[in-house]
Amino acid sequence: MDTHLLRTFVAVLDHRSFSGAAKALGYTQSAVSQHVAALEADLGARLVERRPVAPTPAGTRLLEHAPALLLRLDAARADVARLHHAQPAHLTLACSAAALTSTVARALAQLRAATPLLGLEVRVLAREAVIEEVLTARADLGLVDGVAAPSDPLPLPDLGPTTTLAAAEQPLAVLFPTDHPLARRRSVRLTDLTQAQWIDAPDTAVPLDRLRAVCRTEGFRPRVRHRGTDLHGLAALAASGLGLAALPLPLAATLPGVTAVPADEPRLVHRTELVHTAHPAEPARQLVDLVAGRAATAR
């Protein structure tokens, strides 16, 4: 399967337009049509309906595989490119909104103090984007977060030749408006909140599909959808009574207008993991060592 054809196919369905894909890729519309037709001939199946543009059942199935295939190819290209470029005195850390823990922040400060000329960039992104940044060498390290049973790793996708390191485990909390009856509780059971109204905020709070999975329920249905990485905006929605959200307790306790109540039953923790390639650059390797040491001390 030609990866150029596969990228064109994905672009057509992303834009729901052959002309839109052509503009995004810098091709002519005729070339885009030829690419899709060649891919269909290769696979022996019609993949795209033309009017309107939409995936066929076979196209839908291919779309389930395409992003991971293309990402792994980009990751392989980036990994080879690292061998031919000098290691810069710069460190780029990509992290999801709730993943930058005090453990990692102190390790960053320690690294910066030891190497004053080190350039440092921190990017706050969606969880999936964090992993993509690391695999494609746009970031040296990534911090991702989620919920899991204590000491269990996060259920991350196949990352190829990369390494993950537990950076922190923290109690999980639910955000309530300060005047909510449950805000006065010492703790709440997640299993009692499955039918409550929730805010769907997959790039900031714990994703609701993950809560449904760990609690084995069809509940946790969203009342409001929040997109982006703005934690204070999420807190404002929760403070207004528009829905509940789950966050790590130390972070949740700092947000204005809400009360963070520890969550239990099932017993879960908010876990942060550091993701890096198998052969990180020197500044990244130093930060990994610092985080590992601080995480071990915290335990």
Rank of each mutant, 00 (worst) to 15 (best):
D2R: 15
H4Q: 11
T8Q: 09
F9N: 01
V12C: 10
V12I: 12
R16P: 04
F18I: 11
S19H: 04
A21G: 08
A21Q: 06
T28C: 03
T28V: 06
Q29W: 06
S30V: 09
A31W: 04
A38Q: 14
A45G: 09
P52V: 12
P52D: 13
P55E: 11
T56G: 02
H65N: 06
A66C: 05
A66V: 05
P67R: 07
L69P: 06
L71W: 03
L73Y: 01
A75W: 04
R77A: 14
V80S: 05
V80E: 13
A81G: 02
A81L: 09
R82D: 13
L83P: 01
L91P: 01
L93I: 08
C95W: 00
S96M: 02
S96Q: 04
A99F: 08
L100S: 02
L100A: 04
T101N: 12
T101D: 11
T103Q: 03
A105S: 13
L111Y: 09
R112S: 15
R112G: 05
A114E: 13
P116L: 11
L118P: 11
V122K: 03
V122T: 15
L125I: 07
A129R: 14
V130T: 02
I131Q: 14
E132P: 09
E133P: 00
V134N: 00
V134H: 01
T136P: 09
D140P: 10
V144Y: 02
D145M: 04
A149C: 07
D152G: 09
D152E: 15
L154W: 12
L156M: 13
L165I: 10
A166R: 13
A168D: 13
A168G: 01
Q170I: 00
P171E: 00
L172N: 03
A173R: 05
P177T: 01
D179A: 15
H180F: 10
L182H: 13
A183R: 06
A183L: 05
A183C: 10
R185L: 14
R186I: 09
S187A: 15
V188Y: 06
V188A: 11
L190Y: 06
L193A: 06
Q195Y: 07
D200L: 03
D203C: 03
V206L: 07
P207D: 05
A213Y: 12
G219S: 07
R221W: 06
R223V: 11
V224Q: 10
R225G: 06
R227V: 15
G228M: 07
H232S: 12
H232K: 11
G233S: 07
A236Y: 11
L237H: 08
A238Q: 03
S240M: 08
L244Y: 01
A246L: 01
L249E: 14
P250G: 07
A252I: 07
T254A: 11
T254W: 02
L255N: 04
V261E: 01
V261R: 02
D264R: 14
R267N: 10
L268Y: 06
L268M: 11
R271G: 05
L274K: 03
P280Q: 03
E282V: 09
E282D: 15
L287N: 00
V288Y: 01
D289W: 10
L290R: 12
A292N: 13
T297S: 15
T297F: 14
